[in-house]
Design a protein around this nucleic acid. Structure first.
Lengths: 156, 156
DNA sequence: TTAAACAGGACAGAAAAGGTACTATTTGCG
DNA sequence: CGCAAATAGTACCTTTTCTGTCCTGTTTAA
């Protein structure tokens, strides 16, 4: 029904790995190659994820030799919405939202103009209660749960 | 933050136009060219939207000469989620959902596998309280109805 | 001074979405 | 009975976006 970027998923993996290794605010840093090794993702991809996370203020990068990354805050204090915004940007309903407000407005059409905002707000609010820690939730590894939930979702 | 298809937006426009002209369950039908004229959209696009809406059971198509489309139900009884599912499909978190379940599973990585469910549920729940009528809201420009329904939703 | 590691931007390939056109089928009307 | 109108379904092409990778510059400990 809606689509998230793959990088968003990667980001959650990287973030939970960082916390798992104690790379939190005051702790030790962890390098991008190390994280790539532990997560099984390609190193350039991990680097990209970390860069974006750094720009969003979710991780801190320490430059120079013996540098690395560490979490800017514990995952429990990191709303998932911030991660999503960092990678997917704000909700974009293409037309009627970001520019081109004159096309169908001239003839009085388009009775839904601007009405998606409440939907956006509802989704934002729904996400605001979830932190990255809720998604991380340690090791369990239950692959079928996601698929099952989507089936339920379609059935309704 | 998340992205809807343009067709979903078109669909809401078409649906509200149908109800506006009284093309509801028992009423008169309306042809695709007519709808294209009134909404300012290209005719093939309108036809495509109507076809998808028909497959989803949201509109009824009457074939043959003097045919056309009519709403299968009033918009107030049409959850927005159904429209979104018809055009955008279910939530797709790319990896870890549609195939390739073995890649990172072999080494016990990917601690977030299947943990997106709460997010999906939260979004689905947020959308479940909104109908197409809330977005349509006719000509009078009364955006507050949808907002109110969302407030109720948040209160839960 | 050297090497390790982050920071930033740029780029090619792949995938998806958007829009259009064509054909088949159904059905009212002269 | 035949014609015209209108939906139903399928296929295709164009455009945009996403993904993943690479390259160059900057910082800093040893």
């Amino acid at each position: 029904m809606l689509r998230l970027s793959k990088l968003t998923d990667y980001a959650v993996v990287v973030l939970s790995r960082l916390e798992q290794d104690g790379a939190v605010v005051g702790g030790q840093v962890q390098t991008a190659p190390e994280l790539a090794l532990h997560t099984g993702m390609a190193e350039p991809t991990v680097a990209k994820v970390l860069k974006i996370l750094g720009q969003a203020g979710l991780v801190e990068g320490v430059r120079g030799a013996r540098g690395g990354y560490r979490l800017a805050r514990p995952l429990a204090a990191m709303p998932l919405a911030e991660v999503i915004v960092a990678f997917d940007g704000p909700i974009a309903l293409t037309a009627c939202v970001d520019g081109s407000l004159s096309a169908c407005e001239t003839e009085g059409h388009c009775p839904v103009r601007g009405r998606w905002d409440p939907v956006n707000d509802a989704i934002r609010h729904a996400l605001s209660g979830i932190t990255v820690a809720d998604l991380s939730a340690s090791a369990g590894c239950a692959p079928m749960r996601a698929a099952a939930s989507i089936m339920n979702l379609m059935a309704e």
